[in-house]
Write a protein that binds this DNA or RNA. Sequence first.
DNA 1: GAGTGGTCTAGACCACTGT
DNA 2: CAGTGGTCTAGACCACTCC
Lengths: 263, 263
Amino acid sequence: MPKAYEEIADDLRRQIQAGKWQPGERLPSEEELRRTYDRGVPTIRQALAELETEGLIDKRHGKGTFVRVPRRKVLRTNERHQWEKDRARQAEEVRAQTGVTEHDTGLTVNDLVFNARFYEVEAGEELAEAFGVPVGTALVERVYRTRYAREPAPFNLTHSYLVRDLVAGNPDLLDETKEPWPGGTQNQLHTVGIELDRIVEEVIAARPPTHEEARELGMSPGMAIIHLRKTCIDTDGRVVELSDITLPGDRTRMKFVTPLVRW
Amino acid sequence: MPKAYEEIADDLRRQIQAGKWQPGERLPSEEELRRTYDRGVPTIRQALAELETEGLIDKRHGKGTFVRVPRRKVLRTNERHQWEKDRARQAEEVRAQTGVTEHDTGLTVNDLVFNARFYEVEAGEELAEAFGVPVGTALVERVYRTRYAREPAPFNLTHSYLVRDLVAGNPDLLDETKEPWPGGTQNQLHTVGIELDRIVEEVIAARPPTHEEARELGMSPGMAIIHLRKTCIDTDGRVVELSDITLPGDRTRMKFVTPLVRW
DNA sequence: GAGTGGTCTAGACCACTGT
DNA sequence: CAGTGGTCTAGACCACTCC
């Protein structure tokens, strides 16, 4: 016995993929679909909910149901780190031309809208342990969002932390209006004499977004996000930067190359 | 105006986290909860659906709603690859002691239940391109599942592909009954004269599981999975193995270290 | 058979959007 | 204002599980 909502979802999925409605176009209202399929509204809603978690459609309260417009994809490779390190000692003209986001997206500086907010915070248990500093140590919290000018949602949400005393030698690093910084974090750290030895990236979890995350990243509640933690370790073995990054699962691809020593 | 289902979900979440019901215990039935909260059943169901996507509860048709039992976590680091390469030339006694899964989970061989099925398939467009061979080339498809003996669901679902002619020199590699192979894939390849140069791991996407994946991995439909593609490249630059791995987002942690060259 | 969650219904009312 | 999706209701019937 086939389930009605599955059949409706399958039928609509097929029609969307066949291009019956173009990306951005409105689907028939739930009331119209109810008459089309001769089913109750809740059944229609269940079918639409399924397509929404697949990222095929987008429901907008008061407006209707729309075919989701494909978004700019991001390919984040771990080669970006060496690339950024090489740039960190270049002249400002070179650094200003492209940053890691341009590197990941294939877009140019003019295509991107950048946003940064800085806060002074005290290290809690978790951050204190990660940095190897006492609880309560002054940190700079930097909240970043970069988006493609032609799209409303940013590529990710980034919360980055620095130990304030470690970077206070260059007051510009505490000033959010100086962002976006040409050459990125590795150049910033270079200005206070810090060189990175390695970068550790951890996929902490993949899970559905909170309502907040879904709103900010332009996702439906049923989709998935990746929580990535990036830790920068300097040549003295100290953790000098830590970033918690929330990445939309539907537009993010990550690539990690692990070289092996020869026999 | 607070939403009823949110309030009920919040209340139940609080009670679960406070330990009112232990992991594995049954929650009151929907009918009982309806009376408790003086709301309709659909409202109760909406609240429970939210807790289910968070991985807090587990609904079982005909049985009830249960507090989810925390599962064995897996930490998958990219150091595992060099570790496995170092083992590939060791004596069988050494190789048989531990494999990468034991390395990732901290369990021993006796704790693990291994399952492998082999198939002969022809390369489609995608695999042919990845391997750099003509469409239709004979491949060996190997489907792996490893689980913790005390838990029903495997740690992941793995589909691994090899070019048949490349490994046919050792007939044991085409025989599923020879699995689990002491020393893993890198030792298998070693027996036919292949040495790996590097391993590329790509997070293709994070998304909700299909019904099939949810069932096999013991997940609720609203949770998230990670689709990881691992590519093994040998010292001649050839792709010699490709694996598509489906990882439950709630129990998988991945760690990638990227070393940087010194200034 | 009793109890559980799953599917489906018909309809009320609310909140948001555009005119 | 009309049209849209969001919340909530009361209840029927089915499918699964266990006794």
